[in-house]
Simulated scan of single mutants.
Amino acid sequence: MYSLTPDSEIERYIEEDAPYGDLTTTLLGIGAEPGEIAFTTRERTVLCCTEEAGRVLAKCGAEVLFALPSGTVAAPGTVILRASGPAAALHAGWKVAMNLLEYASGISTRTASIVERARAANQGVSVVTTRKSFPGTKKIAIKAIMAGGAFPHRLGLSESILVFSQHTAFLGGLDAFLEKLPELKSRAPEQKILVEADSAEEALRIAAAGADVVQVDKMPVADLAALVTEIRSRFPGVAISAAGGINGENAASYAATGIDILVLSSVYFGKPADFSTGINPKPKP
């Protein structure tokens, strides 16, 4: 996968950790000594941000020798990134690169697990993620979920139409909005219109009105299965998405209902991936 993170953000990551240089390395007088850094997996990991980690090291003055691409499934004990350079460069980039690798690869590994479980139950299901990544980390978060096999549900408010009850309340309620749905579709002919339902009964009314996607939130699996069957029978052109509380434990059950889309946030929260780092001097000739 490509690294789309701009240089300004890579530089900001480094500046956060070493705004005035590395006091320890400077005082020890080892900054100019040549060395090598290597990052190794401690567990099975779906990698993410090896590209950005390499760019951090390069910005600090090291040379990347080897890096596995994001999306690679790495077994425990796999060296995934190596770089060489003066000790000052290696130490300056070490923790920044490690943090990027561990947090992003944690997200991509959780995502891959959910995608695998969901598609084992429903080969055609699409797994997508919400806008609930931690503020300021969206580029990394989106790269991570894509490395794990998912796609973004919404990148932001500017590029998609998803109508909630919080919107329809300003229009006089759901029924008043549904009367305006044909007008909305005519004003945005290239966009799909997604509408969230608070109940199965609302979902059927939304489907009957011609929404492209009906989204339900926190609906029990048994109720969802019945709703999917009814919408498939009565409104075969309408897609159905489920959101709210979907995680690695229940994703397969939700997927098995025959749903089209699983919408989740759970992959953003959890344990980082676990890597070890070795920094060693180069042998002197």
Rank of each mutant, 00 (worst) to 15 (best):
T5M: 11
T5S: 05
P6Q: 03
R12P: 01
E16H: 07
G21S: 05
T24E: 02
L27V: 15
I30D: 01
I30Y: 02
I30P: 00
R44Y: 03
T45D: 06
V46D: 00
C49N: 12
E52D: 09
A53F: 05
A53W: 05
G54M: 08
A58Y: 04
K59N: 14
L65K: 12
T72H: 09
L81C: 10
G85Y: 11
K95E: 08
Y103T: 02
Y103A: 00
I107Y: 01
T109Q: 01
T111Y: 06
I114F: 01
E116P: 00
R117M: 04
G124S: 11
G136W: 07
K143R: 15
A147Q: 10
L155Q: 07
S158C: 09
S160K: 05
L162R: 04
L171D: 03
G173M: 07
L174M: 13
L178T: 13
S186V: 04
Q191K: 15
K192L: 14
L194K: 13
E196P: 13
S199L: 03
E202Q: 15
R205S: 12
A209M: 06
A211L: 09
V214K: 05
K218L: 13
V221E: 07
R234M: 02
F235S: 06
A243K: 11
I246C: 05
A251G: 04
A256S: 14
T257P: 13
S265H: 04
T277L: 14
T277E: 00
K284W: 08
